[in-house]
């Protein structure tokens, strides 16, 4: 298991290969989130962020067969098309890998302490949380 909160970019291909090394793994599901259209700065709560992500991963492991998992989330200044987040989940079969990957992303959106500030033409503004994200996380209950 690897959890990293970092400013640097990541190589999704390398991370997927690194999460795929156990012989019992038959499927790896991954998700990469990108900055869409507007430059932004991401702030987070050091310490709590890593802790919150670890809890989400533990929760996923209690629900599905997760053999290995990597979550990388960037913070700091990011430009349009930059990678923000990677979730890669390795399991025995695709069903568990797909479900755990989507679950981890849905919970990251509502539980991990990150905040986006967009640099728009009218000036910088904090992104408002979306109720659709709460709804997405709620469906796993």
């Amino acid at each position: 298991m690897k959890i990293s909160v970092q400013t640097e970019d990541f190589d999704a291909g390398l991370e997927i290969r690194n999460v795929s090394r156990h012989s019992s793994i038959g499927a790896v599901a991954s998700f990469v989130g990108l900055v869409r259209e507007v430059a932004m700065t991401l702030e987070h709560y050091p310490g709590m962020t890593e802790r919150a992500i670890a809890k989400i991963v533990d929760d996923a492991k209690s629900r599905w067969q997760v053999i290995d998992c990597t979550v990388i989330h960037r913070y700091g200044a990011l430009l349009p098309n930059d990678q923000i987040v990677l979730v890669a989940v390795a399991g025995g079969h695709r069903g568990d890998a797909f479900a755990a990957c989507e679950f981890i992303m849905d919970y990251l959106k509502t539980q991990a302490p990150f905040w986006k500030k967009e640099q728009t033409a009218e000036g910088a503004r904090w992104v408002e949380a979306k109720s659709a994200d709460d709804t997405a996380a709620e469906r796993w209950k």
């Binding site: 987040v85 959106k109 302490p113 905040w115 992104v127």
Partner: peptide, 10 residues
């Protein structure tokens, strides 16, 4: 203790 707005990561 920490106070913050609803989170917007991911």
């Amino acid at each position: 203790v920490a106070f913050f707005p609803p989170v917007t990561g991911g």
